[in-house]
Design a protein around this nucleic acid. Structure first.
Lengths: 223, 223
DNA sequence: GAAAATATAGGTCGAATGACCTAGATAATC
DNA sequence: GATTATCTAGGTCATTCGACCTATATTTTC
């Protein structure tokens, strides 16, 4: 943690991750790639402009031409990654046009597959920690999880059309929480070493068990 | 990230978090308190010897009398925190001597209560991120979660005595994963802002639903 | 082809860091 | 009272950091 930013007094460089020419756009992409890798491998504290610049193969000065401050890099990297991840969730949800139960089953299976990536899991672990300290990260994740939930809601709606929208939203939130909890111990999660052999089959078995008896309305709670 | 540690060549201070007199023990405790708070508030990168010393109200030299290196502070603080948290889980599990289902219900309720603490949740978010990069942290968490799981296993065993130990272990792992996932969005979690109103009641409702039909053996999978 | 926009390299600066050290003061214990 | 434990206050050192700046190439655009 180097210094107190004496920030933006005159500032002649209004650029913020946007480029006009093709070459610039390409540069921005490679910068964000490098920044993402660095964030994943070395954490937020290890994400330094110098390291990113070196990894992306350009000078620090050049990097700062596109992203004047570190915060700008993080912001852009986050926006890009979460946007892609969101689209991924949507596409998972829309996958296959079968019966409701089957659709849900396939969507969950696909979401679980995404957790195989250690990169992805480590990134999110990093973001969860950051969210408690950085409002920008917290906001970005809030938007992301709202989209995630919405995708699950769509799936659940088909299964239980009678459920009130607010209750669907809540059930979806529980599903998301479970999935994120699993991402810690499963596949590429940072705690896969703290897991248990055979977790996968058990998870599938429980999923089947729940899905078989799923279209029950449940006792109506005070809304 | 300051410098490459030129580490331990002669080293005349073999102390490592242990004190002889009462005053020293007290000091160590206050150091670990300060270090824990700093880790929670500023993250692993913000955990600097200077900051910890200032917070604990002593000199850096004195801090290093007890903990020669930063790593030693982290190790000790982790051991202490996870030990306390482990005991807490056990006591939660042993709480109340009622019927199996009731015991499980109460234990889960107690575990959920622990998630109300933002400090606790932020610390764990930090540790999950760290675990991917620091084997010491990963190992400590692995031990912790093994204990956590063991506690849940005890509870589940009463409910489903027929289940094989390995399957109990796996079910417990799923419960732990769900709980940790919830800790992100519930109570003091770093993503409480990304949650949904009424999550609590819904969670209780689902819990009840599951607990009611719980002593079913489930289809025997290939073990 | 000239003017303007864009791209890039290299360097400076103040601030902060972890590890280490010295020299001495104060307190507890035997 | 001597021994050990605890503690303070300061400083050194090599290193890293983010922000900032200037000078120069390279492209676009007109």
């Amino acid at each position: 943690m180097p210094r107190a930013p004496r920030r933006k007094l005159p500032s002649a460089k209004p650029r913020e991750g946007t480029a006009v020419h093709a070459k610039g756009t390409e540069r921005v992409e490679s910068i964000l790639d490098a920044a993402t890798d660095t964030l994943i491998e070395d954490g937020h504290a290890g994400l330094t402009l110098r390291r990113v610049a070196q990894r992306a193969g350009l000078s620090v000065g050049n990097l700062q031409y596109y992203f004047p401050a570190k915060q700008d890099v993080v912001r852009a990297l986050l926006a890009r990654y979460l946007e892609v991840a969101s689209r991924r969730v949507r596409s998972r949800v829309e996958e296959g046009g079968r019966a409701p139960v089957e659709r849900l089953r396939r969507a969950l299976e696909a979401l679980l597959e995404d957790q195989e990536s250690p990169r992805h899991c480590q990134l999110f672990a990093e973001l969860w920690a950051l969210a408690g300290r950085d409002a920008m990260v917290s906001d970005a994740l809030t938007v992301f999880y709202a989209g995630f939930r919405a995708g699950i809601v769509e799936l659940l709606r088909e299964l239980a059309p009678g459920l009130a929208p607010s209750r669907l939203e809540r059930r979806a939130a529980l599903v998301v929480a479970f999935l994120e909890g699993l991402s810690l111990f499963r596949g590429g999660g940072t705690l896969r070493a703290a897991s248990v052999p055979g977790l996968e089959q058990e998870l599938r078995a429980v999923l089947e068990e729940v899905l078989e008896g799923v279209p029950r309305a449940g006792a109506r709670p005070r809304d």
